[in-house]
């Protein structure tokens, strides 16, 4: 599968896919998309990059172990449920904060962070399975 064309295009393709996945993640609250789908797209990006250029370069590129990314995602999601407690509301009651940045209104919310957590969990878990399978010889 490691043809020249594939190997040349794969990095760009993967980068585009990751970018797209983030786009899908962020628009999820109002349009089709969300953390789960975004995570799957990003995981496919990692898988394609791995097939084309080898698992080692993927591991270098994402710096952290994918399972670590996954665990951090779970942590972030759980954390996103906490702020409501300080307002004496039930765990995971959503909190909203409208921030005006350079004239653009950005809606920061706990569900957004929760969704980012879901995204990371899916990227990490699926990605690490795919990478582990792509590795021909393990250590």
């Amino acid at each position: 599968m490691r043809t020249i064309i594939f190997r040349t295009i794969a990095p760009y393709l993967s980068a585009l896919m990751v970018l797209f996945s983030i786009f899908v993640l962020l628009r999820g609250h109002n349009e089709p998309g969300g953390g789960f789908i975004g995570g799957l797209i990003a995981a496919s990006a990692l898988a394609i990059f791995g097939i084309a250029c080898g698992v080692a370069s993927v591991r270098r590129a994402i710096v952290f172990h994918p399972m670590g990314v996954s665990g951090f995602g779970l942590f972030l999601s759980a954390l996103a449920g906490l702020p409501s407690i300080f307002k004496a509301q039930a765990f995971m009651t959503s909190q909203w904060l409208d921030v005006h940045l350079f004239g653009v209104e950005i809606a920061l919310s706990t569900p957004l962070f929760f969704d980012i957590g879901v995204y990371l969990v899916v990227v990490g878990a699926i990605g690490s399975i795919a990478l582990a399978l792509e590795e021909r010889e393990v250590d």
Partner: peptide
């Protein structure tokens, strides 16, 4: 505050 009901259910109503 979300128009995508599926996503709202996933991350908020049934988070």
């Amino acid at each position: 505050h979300g128009r995508n009901i599926v996503n709202v259910i996933i991350v908020d109503f049934r988070g």
